[in-house]
Design a protein around this nucleic acid. Structure first.
Length: 453
RNA sequence: GUGAUUGUAGCUCAGCUGGUUAGAGCGCUGGUUUGUGGAUCCAGAGGUCGCCGGUUCGAACCCGGUCUUUCACCCCA
């Protein structure tokens, strides 16, 4: 007899955890709907060639591959074995588990381009899998909640993303967080302005670590990545820049005066802020972070990342604008912008802050109890009457001592217990006990229904 | 993927330099209470010490492997 166990980085969720996850999921879903997004789902597995090459070499390593069914070795030759894992892989595996929701969405858009009305706003809430080394807030199976809109380059989308993030956090009861925002074009412009045109990729990777390892270490890394000493030094004023939004923007306009892209980036950012103010919204929680880079290479415009203060968990939400996501699938020129909430991390954040609203993990309103078979039969009749009135009702299924039945209600935090004894049966009533206050009253059925509704 | 780290009853943890039947608190079960839960008191059940192998007269403790946890790097929700 073996002890059962779970694969690395996966978890079970009990009733209490599920109640909490559902709370998070529901607030996110409601917000997406409020902003006009429509739900889709895609399969857990995709063809491997849909997934590979979309997340960089690192990402390919983290894909879970699915072994072909049947004799998966039938196409493998000894020559393949000699060539190594790469040659064997595409003969034994043709499918993989989805790594994120954005690439499957891109695939979906391309396959359904003729049916969709653009701009298309979709949301998708499903698990994804990554063969990462797990840590706290980092799992091998976790949910993403994506909202993307494709087929428009309107900055209204960017503004709405900010509003959705703020609404979700408000409803989750989280107040202390910041929405870091930047624009990939600004980073491109900075690379140009310091004379390292086209090297914004490595620049981003290095700069992204600024608040983690500090400016000195970033300089070292830039040097290693082949940046000139002079270029690196000219970055310095940007790093030490710490002032309000307006002066940051003004500074950048001067710094990027010779970079067309860079100025476009600043303009886009200002445009999104402008739309917010026209909507009558403020810029609360927004932190324009010139050094925010984000790893994913497909972003081309605005980029977002949300970090909750005072917790050890990394970013709980992120996203950005991409100009050509569907290009790899043969449909160029579709601009889109999207972002994603990490439910599992939001859970960990709320858990760490002890910020879950205290709610019962059972939805049952009343438990019907009885002493003997007559009472049991009486209770069965009431059970249906209560349920038909829309009251979530349970009956204790086995004839047990009344104490047991009360304990059961107590443990499940069921707020009311209905007692169906001989007395009640004769009078055609029910004794209803409030388990919190201990009050108990005899009511006829319609009165009880009113009380419990 | 690289380098560390963790694992003892359902839960949180004790267990001295390897030495008889591995402990506590909480929880659980039964009773105290034959129409009433949360409190008190009493009694009881529950552990192949993650798993496999090695060293030893003897291993929860030492060694190797493996799985899991956490951490740093990498990357990311």
């Amino acid at each position: 007899m073996q002890k059962p166990s779970l694969p690395k980085g996966t978890r079970d969720f009990g009733p209490l955890q599920m109640a909490r996850r559902t709370f998070i999921l529901d607030t996110i879903r409601d917000t997406f709907k409020l902003f006009g997004y429509q739900q889709i789902e895609t399969p857990a597995m995709e063809n491997l060639n849909t997934l590979t090459g979309k997340y960089g070499d690192e990402g390919d390593q983290l894909l879970f591959k699915i072994l072909n069914s049947g004799d998966f070795l039938k196409d493998v030759t000894t020559a393949d074995l000699d060539k190594g894992p790469g040659a064997v892989l595409n003969k034994v595996s043709e499918k993989g588990l989805r790594y994120d929701l954005t690439v499957p969405f891109a695939r979906y858009v391309v396959m359904n381009r003729n049916e969709l009305t653009f701009p298309f706003k979709r949301y998708q809430i499903q698990p994804v899998w990554r063969a990462d080394r797990p840590q706290k807030g980092r799992y091998r199976e976790f949910y993403q909640c994506d909202a993307d809109v494709v087929g428009t380059d309107s900055l209204v989308c960017e503004a709405e993303i900010v509003l959705m993030i703020r609404r979700v956090f408000e409803n989750l009861g989280l107040r202390e967080y910041s929405i870091k925002i930047n624009n990939r074009k600004i980073l491109t412009g900075i690379a140009e302005a310091i004379g390292e045109e086209g090297k914004e990729g490595p620049l981003c990777v290095a700069i992204d670590k600024l608040d983690k390892i500090g400016w000195e270490k970033v300089k070292e890394e830039l040097l290693q990545r082949g940046f000139g000493q002079k270029s690196i030094e000219s970055l310095a004023p940007l790093v030490s820049l710490e002032s309000d939004l307006k002066s940051k923007l003004n500074f950048l306009k001067r710094f990027l005066k010779n970079s067309e892209v860079g100025l476009k980036g600043v303009e886009e950012l200002e445009g999104a802020f402008g739309i917010l103010s026209q909507m009558g919204e403020n810029l609360d929680h927004i932190d324009f972070d010139i050094m925010l880079a984000r790893g994913l290479s497909y972003y081309t415009g605005a980029i977002f990342e949300v970090k909750v203060h005072h917790v050890s968990i990394g970013s709980v939400s992120g996203g950005g604008r991409y100009d050509n996501l569907t290009g790899v699938f043969g449909l160029p020129g579709v601009s889109g912008v999207g972002f994603s909430f990490g439910v599992d991390r939001l859970y960990d954040v709320l858990d760490e802050l002890k910020a879950f609203p205290k709610e019962s993990h059972t939805s049952t309103r009343i438990l019907l109890t009885y002493f003997d078979h007559k009472g049991f039969e009486y209770a069965l009749g009431l059970l249906s009457q209560f349920r038909n009135a829309g009251i979530k009702t349970e009956i204790y299924p086995n004839q047990m001592k009344i104490q047991k039945q009360f304990e059961f209600a107590n443990k499940k935090e069921i707020p009311f217990v209905g007692i169906c004894g001989e007395e009640e049966l004769k009078a055609g009533i029910i004794s209803v006990k409030n388990m919190v206050t201990g009050e108990q009253q005899k009511l006829d059925i319609s009165q009880a229904i009113v009380l419990l509704s």
